[in-house]
Design a binder for these strands. Structure first.
Length: 483
RNA sequence: CGGGGUGUGGCGCAGUCCGGUUAGCGCGCCUGCUUUGGGAGCAGGAGGCCGAGAGUUCGAAUCUCUCCACCCCGACCA
């Protein structure tokens, strides 16, 4: 018996780590806070990339790549930006090593003229380019995205949720008007929300960040917030309206249609491998990972069962036929015909790894023209005819996808509560956690006080039905303890 | 950075207080046979300078000192 996954109600944090490890998604690296993303985890990320990339392209964006190293002086250009990131930058100071005695040291002779910062985000190096690319309103807009890694030297890390190095995409756009930039910011927020809900099956709340939670260098930060199974919130993605802050910092101006010189308006936005953590903490259970079918690298696994050689031939032939027909139907299917592992072992393995559907086929099934179909999300099994199996599987995958979203949404609704006093706020937070809709007077002081006393922060100021965020003297906002 | 904890075959641990033959156990791994519809059984085997360095001692995984690494809880953050 392999070591078990810690149950959620015993130790949620340990459960999370156990799931990541047992599902072979990632592991700690020799470098503190960094992670090794294993094939199972990386395949998930590739599927997420493919879906998001398609959505970015569909909204007119193109990919580019800027360097990982940023001249240290660039960081200093935008005052709020440097203040926000200075404390977590990895700095490159030398260009080579040298052996001194039996020690390997940075060669003092190779000290760089100017330190290089390993990008914590790429606004500065990108706006430096934009300042050279943009002269006229005709050069705008620029709609660029890049897939990259970034490094933020955080004090505390957790696999996927917060790692020293992480993978993400960062969009950086330049516009001729404030309205256009704001439209872009909100458009991408919609893209993120759609991706989370349609692909990850994670319901999110869209809204605005308070000034204290705003991105360093942004005029306004928008976010999507999700609720995890333990009642803590997780910021799933952010988009930033940068105003003219980076245009000014990098002297990026253009001549408008009225022949006036104007600073360029900007946006930036990103989602990261953190979304894998969000997926785990939204859907998985004490048996291991549960993946939404749309992103699962393997959607269906076929496990053949047999004793004798004669059975083996018959079963594998039938299993191969099922594999082909599922593949033709567009299903990502894998036939696990390994002789080295027994069926029971495989059942468990794919359950822990979150494969949405399992087809088991043995001599009994071959004789009766049926298979055993098992759902990972509900851990249910049924015997179904091979006739029409492809259509049934395709339908079932869709049902699983929507079912997972519906359950996550129901959980969030059950764990979103309105309160009318600070006393009640504290009681609910202690007893139940979750999102709490409670007033906010708009001051940093109140946020700081509540955070110090309860650990909760304003996760977002939600949009109202009119598309604008709620205003008024003391609007209700979403509070929660967060990751 | 503050508080707590842990370093012993690939993984998880016992042994450390009270120093003493060849450092054990579970899982995993290798070979063979029997097995295969929910993590197989039996037999045989491989694998460890006990985190690093120094010291005490006839003798150190065990005692002393120094250092290092990682994990957990806070402050910081996607």
């Amino acid at each position: 018996m392999a070591d078990a996954i810690t149950p959620r109600d015993k130790d949620y944090s340990q459960w999370y780590l156990d799931v990541v490890r047992h599902a072979k998604l990632a592991e700690h690296s020799p470098v503190r806070g960094c992670m090794i993303i294993r094939p199972n985890g990386y395949a998930l990320w590739e599927n997420m990339q493919a879906a998001l990339d398609g959505m970015f392209k569909a909204t007119g964006h193109e990919n580019a790549y800027f360097p990982i190293f940023i001249p240290q002086s660039f960081l200093a250009r935008e005052a709020a930006h440097v203040e926000g990131f200075a404390k977590e930058c990895a700095v490159v100071t030398h260009s080579r090593l040298k052996i001194e005695g039996d020690e390997l040291i940075a060669d003092p002779a190779s000290k760089l003229e100017e330190n290089l910062v390993v990008r914590p985000t790429s606004e500065t190096i990108i706006w430096d380019s934009y300042s050279r690319w943009i002269q006229s309103w005709r050069d705008l807009p620029i709609l660029i995205n890049q897939w990259s890694n970034v490094v933020r030297w955080e004090m505390r890390t957790r696999l996927f949720l917060r790692t020293t190095e992480f993978l993400w995409q960062e969009g950086h756009t330049a516009h001729a008007t404030s309205d256009e930039a704001m439209d872009e910011t909100l458009k991408i927020l919609d893209v993120y929300a759609t991706f989370c809900e349609d692909y990850l099956a994670i319901p999110v709340i869209k809204g605005v960040k308070t000034p204290t939670e705003r991105f360093a260098g942004a005029v306004e930060t928008f976010c999507i917030e999700a609720l995890m199974q333990d009642g803590k919130a997780l910021q799933a993605g952010t988009t930033h309206f940068l105003g003219q802050n980076f245009g000014k910092a990098f002297n990026c101006q253009f001549q408008n249609r009225d022949n006036e010189l104007e600073y360029v308006w900007g946006t930036s936005w990103g989602v990261s491998t953190r979304l894998i953590g969000a997926m785990i903490m939204t859907h998985s259970d004490d048996q291991g990972l549960v993946m939404p079918p749309k992103l699962a690298p393997t959607q269906v696994v076929i496990v053949p069962i047999y004793r004798s050689d004669e059975d083996r031939v018959r079963v594998l032939e039938a299993a191969g036929a099922i594999e082909s027909s599922l593949r033709e139907a567009g299903v990502r299917v894998k036939l696990d015909a390994r002789e080295s592992q027994r069926p029971g072992w495989k059942f468990n393995e794919y359950e822990v790894q979150g494969v949405p559907l399992r087809v088991a086929i043995g001599p009994r099934d071959v004789a009766s023209g049926s298979v055993e179909l098992a759902r990972r999300d509900l851990r249910s099994k049924e015997v179904v005819p091979v006739e029409g199996l492809s259509a049934a599987v395709v339908g079932l995958l869709e049902e699983i996808q929507t079912g997972m979203f519906d359950r996550a949404l129901a959980f969030r609704e059950e764990n979103t509560r309105e309160v009318n006093s600070y006393e009640e706020f504290k009681e609910v937070l202690e007893a139940k956690g979750g999102f709490i809709k409670f007033e906010w007077d708009g001051t940093d002081e109140m946020e700081a006080k509540v955070k110090a006393e309860t650990g909760a922060t304003v996760r977002c100021i939600p949009f109202s039905s009119t598309g604008k965020w709620e205003t008024g003297d003391n609007p209700r906002v979403f509070w929660a303890r967060a990751y």
